[in-house]
Simulated assay, not measured.
Amino acid sequence: MSFASPASLPKLVSAALILVLCLAFAPSAHAQLEIKIKTKQREYVQFEDIPVMITLTNRSGRDLTLGGPGGADWLDFRVFRGQRAVRRSNLNNIFEPTMIRNGQTMKFTVDIANYFTMTDFGFYTFQAAVWFSPARKYITSNRTSGNVVSARVLWDQTYGVTRDRPKTDTDLSEFESLHDDGGSRLMTLRTHKFMKFTGRNKSYLYYRLDDPSTLACLTCYRLAELIDIRKPMFAIDNDNHAHVLWMTRPQMYAKVEIDTRGNVLPDSVKYFKEKGPSIPRLQAVPQGGVAVVGGVEFDPDAAKEQKEATRRLSELPPGLEELIDMRRQLEAAE
């Protein structure tokens, strides 16, 4: 074994110091590709979407083509429930190769519940990972978290509906097999379900559509904030559409109609408020429909515009308000 001579030690120390400094100040892959993720909420009701907002900035000094190694996805996630890693349930390639220009920032949202099974109650942490081809490695983002929780069922209703026949009979539920007439459409069951989740400071109304034959949840989402001064009202019409009327603010209510596929009908979203002793409520009407009676309907957008107009008037210079009122009076007299 040979050792460096005392005369060569200063040169070796100098070379080592230069190497350390070069490594310390060399631009890292993390600095060249910046990845940030965040969520809008901290708690998610079981089966609810878990959207993660991703911000990706290219600081490499050149255009980059985002594509994974060997045809794999260039964007992936690392999900943990407690200390245990959660396996990806959707193994298909989702994110196609794309280009990000030098200095460009991309912002997009991904529902990670589509790729990982996150239906067990508990505390989850997740982190995004992007393949950085110049360094031939995945670069990870910051960590964020979410808690999957339960919600209390306020009302549910099971009803019959038809669906397209699946490719194989093994996909039929027991109920569908018993009611199978051999046609292209099958009679099956669905359950409308409304739930209440109470967070730290607010309560929210949730909707969920279930297949009671297979115990599968088909969709679950938050409707809006729920005020419990008055209990929400529920009904189902002759088309098996679910109707709900609930208080969103003191003396103010929202009403929606949800079809048999779990979709809110856009034209059905309406708002009402109390008028004296008259309180909005759901009521069955002829031909099997459901309507709101009592209270008075109002347009929150129009109310907002009026409020903003009033605010703008209050900001006018002294004396100008009187001139505007005078002009209105003269125009009315004409």
Rank of each mutant, 00 (worst) to 15 (best):
5 S>Q: 09
8 S>L: 06
8 S>K: 06
8 S>E: 12
12 L>V: 13
15 A>V: 01
23 L>I: 05
24 A>L: 13
25 F>P: 02
26 A>F: 14
45 V>P: 00
46 Q>E: 10
49 D>E: 13
51 P>L: 02
60 S>T: 12
61 G>Y: 07
67 G>Y: 10
68 G>N: 04
68 G>Q: 03
70 G>D: 07
83 Q>N: 08
83 Q>Y: 07
86 V>W: 04
88 R>W: 07
94 I>Q: 13
96 E>V: 10
96 E>S: 10
100 I>G: 12
101 R>T: 08
104 Q>K: 10
115 Y>Q: 05
116 F>L: 00
118 M>L: 12
119 T>S: 03
125 T>R: 12
127 Q>M: 07
129 A>Q: 12
129 A>I: 09
130 V>W: 11
132 F>G: 01
137 K>E: 11
138 Y>R: 09
139 I>V: 13
142 N>Y: 04
144 T>E: 00
146 G>F: 13
149 V>N: 10
149 V>R: 14
151 A>R: 09
164 D>L: 11
167 K>E: 11
171 D>C: 04
173 S>G: 11
174 E>M: 10
179 H>P: 02
181 D>Y: 09
184 S>Q: 11
187 M>F: 15
187 M>H: 13
188 T>E: 01
189 L>I: 04
193 K>A: 07
200 R>L: 14
207 Y>D: 06
211 D>V: 03
212 P>I: 05
214 T>R: 13
219 T>F: 04
221 Y>D: 01
221 Y>G: 00
223 L>H: 06
226 L>N: 15
227 I>A: 11
227 I>V: 15
252 M>E: 15
253 Y>S: 15
266 P>I: 00
269 V>W: 09
278 S>C: 04
283 Q>K: 13
301 D>W: 07
307 K>R: 10
308 E>G: 00
308 E>I: 06
314 S>Q: 13
316 L>M: 11
325 D>L: 10
327 R>K: 02
328 R>D: 04
329 Q>C: 08
333 A>C: 02
334 E>A: 09
